[in-house]
Nucleic acid binder design. Structure first.
Length: 980
RNA sequence: GCGGGGGUGCCCGAGCUAGGUCAAAGGGGUCGGGCUCAGGCCCCGAUGGCGUAGGCCUGCGUGGGUUCAAAUCCCACCCCCCGCACCA
């Protein structure tokens, strides 16, 4: 297939590939991940956003699926009956455009497929039709998912255009319509005049999203009743107009627009025909011809001249512009040029005074004429200066936020600009003194065919009315009851729910399902994927019994999902056996509600929000989803993956190069889900190396210690024979179990995998180093825990090694390790901590003094000093506010202690520094220990850590060898040290 | 503009929602040593500054503040990233 020419990076990666194939085969043979309802077993139903098959999957997709699968495997091992299904989302238009491009022989795209995605040349042929492309990438993605080790129940697979699923979607829309959540109206879209089709981001050159803006056309009146529609985004500035602008070089027309006569650019006349206007051109007029005419401002009644503006773009909106020099940099500069030009002034019979800027907005800290301020500040002299764009932006923003209407604006006086704008617009519109025209704001935007796109107003567009207050309230309520991971995203959901309004839910081309009541309208992709998780619960039956689409009537879905209707009657009517209908109903009720929904963070403001809305609309409250898990993107070598950078890493290639376990672990260990993960060659290599070491460890334990012949449970039988190091490893392992489990429960994937992969290896290394002879029982126990904790992340190699250490069955189904308090030994952990501190201190001294140690003397603190430890622990347990002060107060009551004076203060300080960091569970153990005894008990161990035989322990009191007087510095649990 | 996230040591990145375990986890890189015919892998050590005794100083975007104690809490400011739709 596609990956034939790609070879694994090394032998170990090759080995990983081999065992992956083996275990995949076995898993599917034994149907390990097929989940059916089981009474008495807690269920866990989770889904990840199904992919849109217009390209092969890359490691970005893999992240979401890996996170989902890690969680699924974890839950499965914890004893849940886990269902993780998958489908494919064919709905949408990008595939159309892409297939068309391939069919036309688009070099860029084909090159991308062949050289970036490594699709075999001979397969390109299959991508020339939309359906062919979808099917091809569907199968390719499915293979990649299997390779990745996703524990999916494939019996439930479907695509969003399989006819049975379409029936389900029709049912959903019927329900939504019955509830009044579907409305109809007009809607502006980007439009290609050649294709006669709406144009979205993926249909434009350079993938530009067309931004549509609404211009107000203020209808200035000419002497013969004709109107001059001035296009503006700032209708409130109508009070400050000194003149109009037209481009003298451009062609204008006098046209009848919906019955009234307008003077507009000829381009504008044409564009208006797309916006539901009846436009009849009466005659052409050159821009020059218009100059000098006088027109009446419909708001103020003032008569102003039309003047030449070279900066006016006849291709933008109406091509007629009103001039507000006080508040618009372009106007100011152009007018300044004209005011100096006597010839022009005379020609059009205009006096310079007439063209005085009229200030109508005041902005704190600025002069009367903010346009002049900014132009002068930037040193702009010509109306063709490009910086005017920037100046305009700045000024618009400033006045919008800080501007207040002046007293010369009548009833709008004193209103902030942001309020006045809408009021003026409304008033003008309602008095028939203005109109509306849509325009592309970020123009020019070109269709892939090269045509510049325009705004088209679609009529009879269908909407899902997400602004419906009742529905909004349901969505809010649903969100409140859900867990969101990471919690930070809750705010985004809240914001989106408030903000979302009517959404066009159908379009007239592309793959998908037709609206049940309106043929020709295809339900759009974000609208047909909101509750499909419910369909997984019954697609098993539909696939197994090959239930035909026409049998899946609305009554069937009413019964299965809502429990409405009489099964037997429905069975009779549809021919679906009642037994199957009942099984479907039961299966739905078993799995629903959905326990966890997973996707990338890009779907928060759209899909996931709609998912909440639609569940709230269709299903009863107790079946609303329980949680959403959102993950960040994947970077490659620190950079965003993109077609243009050609740095996309296809999943199947990554799997092959490094092995799927490596890919999964790299994604897991690289970042917590709220951030972007950085996949890199060095990361993958280092993870691969870790896995190799894991295998080496286990191979050698099997070889040398025959741990495959030892039972995990036997550890409890040998407890009394264990060494200090043995006990330590067992104890620390309990801490690891606890932390990995807690991390996974809270989707802290990075912490969980890091602990299991890195920290546990360190634990093991330390154990091997300090234990004289590793104990097979301890090793076996440790390894079995280690593998199980790693299993959700690296299912293949752990499956392989699980058998190697002599375990039966699948690790995928093994029991998740439990925290075992019997193996926890607080004393050993404390002692370990204590000894390591001594070793560190000694190393520090050696480093600073560069003494080559021959003998080391350790002086344990004098008995009275330990009194302090008890008091400190008491105070810390009581959680007093200022432990240091409290302890001193208490301790100084004791004359024996008080006589040591300032020394006590120092001691208390150091002791608090030592004890406070310990977690509280250690306090009692610490208080019960005798330091000197501990030290003597573990002297052998300490000697080994130090690599030195001559280590002596004495007490501060009565030390018989203390040449440098060090003993007096001894602090409880921090012995004084003398090295020679 | 609105909304969200973030600024930590050479780099990436924890910690910051329960202030003392923090000179600051972990990974990577770099340097030194070991292993090796050699290279890779692997192992040990170092990696803010100073220090012939386990210490001190500086330090977590900037500037203030609260506190016995702040990367962690409060205030102000600067900078970076992402989303804002009909598109999957």
């Amino acid at each position: 297939m596609a990956t034939a020419e790609i070879a694994p990076v090394n032998d170990f990666a090759k080995y990983l590939n081999e065992i992956s194939e083996k275990w995949l085969r076995k898993w599917y043979e034994d149907r390990v991940f097929e989940a059916d309802p089981k009474s008495g077993k807690p269920k866990f139903f989770l889904t990840a956003a199904f992919p849109y098959p217009n390209s092969p999957l890359h490691i970005g997709h893999a992240r979401t699926y890996t996170v989902t699968d890690i969680y699924a495997r974890f839950k499965r091992m914890q004893g849940f009956n886990v269902l993780f299904p998958m489908g494919f989302h064919y709905t949408g238009t990008p595939i159309l455009t892409m297939a068309e491009a391939v069919a036309k022989g688009d070099k860029e795209l084909i090159d991308l497929f062949i050289n970036v995605y490594h699709i075999p040349k001979e397969d390109i042929e299959k991508l020339k039709t939309p359906l062919g492309m979808a099917k091809y990438f569907h199968e390719d993605a499915k293979k990649a998912m299997k390779q990745l080790g996703l524990s999916i129940d494939w019996r439930r697979e479907f695509t969003s255009i399989t006819p049975q699923f379409s029936q389900f979607i029709r049912w959903q829309f019927q329900k939504l319509r019955e509830k009044g959540y579907v409305t109809q109206g007009t809607h502006p879209v980007g439009w290609c005049p050649v294709h006669q089709n709406p144009v979205g981001q993926h249909d434009t050159k350079g993938d530009v999203e067309p931004e549509i803006g609404e211009f107000t056309l203020i209808l200035f009146e000419g002497e013969n009743g004709e109107k001059y529609p001035c296009a503006t985004l700032r209708p409130e500035t109508v009070f400050g107009v000194t003149n109009l602008w037209v481009n003298p070089e451009s062609e204008y027309v006098l046209a009848e627009v919906d019955g009234s006569k307008w003077v507009i650019s000829s381009k504008a006349a044409w564009k208006l025909t797309f916006q539901n206007r009846k436009v009849k051109t009466i005659r052409k007029i050159s821009g020059k011809e218009l100059l000098g005419r006088r027109v009446k401002n419909p708001m103020t009644g003032a008569k102003v001249p039309i003047l030449p503006g070279k900066f006016v773009d006849p291709n933008n909106a109406s091509g007629v512009v009103m001039s507000v020099p006080a508040h618009a940099p372009y106007d100011y500069v152009a007018l300044e040029e004209i005011r100096k030009d006597k010839e022009v002034l005379e020609k059009y019979n205009v006096s310079p005074n007439e063209l005085q800027p009229i200030s109508i907005i005041s902005v704190e800290g600025h002069s009367e004429y903010p346009a002049r301020d900014i132009v002068e500040k930037m040193g702009i002299k010509s109306q063709l200066d490009e910086r005017l764009e920037e100046a305009t932006k700045q000024l618009y923003s400033l006045e919008y936020h800080k501007g207040v209407m002046k007293e010369n604006t009548g009833k709008y006086s004193k209103l902030p600009v942001r309020e006045a704008r809408d009021k003026v617009k409304e008033d003008l519109l309602s008095q028939g003194k203005a109109d509306i025209m849509y325009e592309i704001l970020n123009k020019p935007v070109y269709c892939r065919c090269g045509t510049e796109i325009v705004v088209k107003i679609l009529e009879n567009q269908w909407f899902l009315d997400y602004s419906n207050p009742e529905w909004k309230e349901l969505a809010r309520k649903a969100l409140k009851s859900m867990r969101i991971f990471p919690e930070e995203f809750r705010k985004d959901f809240e914001y989106t729910i408030e903000w979302v309004k009517e959404r066009a839910c159908a379009r007239q081309r592309g793959l998908g399902t037709e609206l049940p009541w309106s043929p020709g309208w295809i339900i759009e992709s974000l609208s047909d994927s909101t509750i499909y998780m419910a369909y997984y619960t019954i697609s098993k039956h539909i696939n197994e019994y090959r239930i035909e689409p026409n049998k899946l009537t609305h009554e069937v879905f009413d019964y299965v999902f809502l429990g409405v209707g009489d099964v037997n009657k429905i069975s009779e009517k549809t021919g679906i056996p009642a037994k199957i209908l009942k099984a479907m109903r039961e299966e739905f009720l078993y799995w629903y509600p959905l326990d966890s929904r997973h996707s990338g963070k890009d779907l928060v403001p759209n899909h996931l929000t709609f998912f909440i809305y639609n569940h709230a609309a269709i299903f009863p409250e107790k079946l609303w989803p329980r949680q959403i898990v959102v993950n960040g993107f994947v970077l490659y070598e620190g950079k965003k993956m993109s077609k243009s950078l050609r740095n996309i890493v296809p999943l199947r290639i990554a799997n092959k190069l490094y092995g799927s376990d490596t890919v999964r672990l790299s994604l897991a260990v690289s970042a917590e889900i709220n951030q972007d993960a950085d996949f890199s060659v060095s990361l993958a290599s280092s993870v691969l190396e870790r896995l190799r070491r894991l295998k080496n460890y286990i191979d050698s334990f099997v070889d040398e210690y025959k741990i495959n012949n030892v039972s995990i449970e036997d550890i409890h039988k040998v407890m009394d024979k264990l060494s200090y190091a043995d006990k330590w490893l067992l104890s620390i392992t309990q801490k690891r179990i606890k932390s990995v489990t807690e991390a996974l429960e809270n989707l802290r994937i990075r912490e969980a995998s890091g602990t299991a992969l890195y920290l546990m290896e360190q634990d093991l290394k330390w154990y091997i180093e300090v234990s004289e002879i590793p104990n097979p029982y301890v090793l076996k126990y440790f390894v079995s825990v280690w593998l199980r904790l790693l299993a959700p992340f690296a299912p293949f190699i752990t499956e392989e090694l699980w058998r190697k250490i002599g375990e039966k069955g699948y690790i995928s189904l093994a029991k998740w390790p439990n925290y075992d308090y019997r193996l926890r030994d607080l004393k050993v952990e404390l002692v370990e901590h204590y000894l390591r501190r001594i070793v560190d201190d000694i190393k520090e001294i050696v480093k600073v003094t560069s003494i080559k140690p021959q003998k080391i003397y350790l002086y344990v603190a004098a008995p009275w000093k330990y009194e302090l430890v008890g008091v400190i622990i008491d105070k810390l347990k009581a959680k007093v506010k200022n432990p240091q002060r409290e302890v001193l107060k208490e301790v100084m009551k004791n004359k024996e202690i008080a006589k040591h004076g300032r020394k006590v203060v120092e001691l208390v300080k150091s002791l608090i520094d030592f004890i406070m960091p310990l977690s509280e569970e250690y306090y009692d153990t610490l208080a019960s220990l005798d330091e000197e005894e501990v030290l003597k008990e573990n002297l052998q161990y300490l000697k080994r850590m130090l690599g030195l035989e001559k280590v002596f322990v004495m007490n501060e009191e009565g030390a018989n060898y203390d040449p440098k007087g060090k003993a007096k510095y001894a602090i409880p649990w921090k012995p004084a040290i003398y090295i020679e």
